[in-house]
């Protein structure tokens, strides 16, 4: 942050996930991995795929 600038910080709970997590637990499941896929990675892989398709044509 630059001196003099202001920032807001937001921390949130993904409330939607709680019922699903409960359902998963009741079904015998356990969370073993979670994470975020960067949007840039998605865009890049789409482009790569399209380029691949183009080469194929």
């Amino acid at each position: 942050m630059l001196p003099g600038s202001v920032a807001g910080v937001l921390v949130w709970e993904n409330r939607w996930a709680a019922p699903f997590a409960s359902a998963a637990r009741r079904s015998g499941g356990q969370l073993i991995a979670t994470g975020r896929i960067p949007i840039q990675a998605i865009a890049a892989s789409i482009e790569a795929e399209l380029a691949e398709q183009e080469e194929g044509n």
């Binding site: 998963a24 079904s27 015998g28 499941g29 356990q30 969370l31 994470g35 896929i37």
Partner: peptide, 27 residues
């Protein structure tokens, strides 16, 4: 792509013998 919100993934493991699928997760 622009319309997407943050994209997350999760992996739920069902150990051998522990799985008790009732359709609840899908619902």
């Amino acid at each position: 792509v622009d319309d997407l919100g943050p994209v997350d993934y999760l992996v739920v493991e069902f150990p051998v013998g522990a799985a008790n699928f009732t359709g609840e997760m899908a619902e």
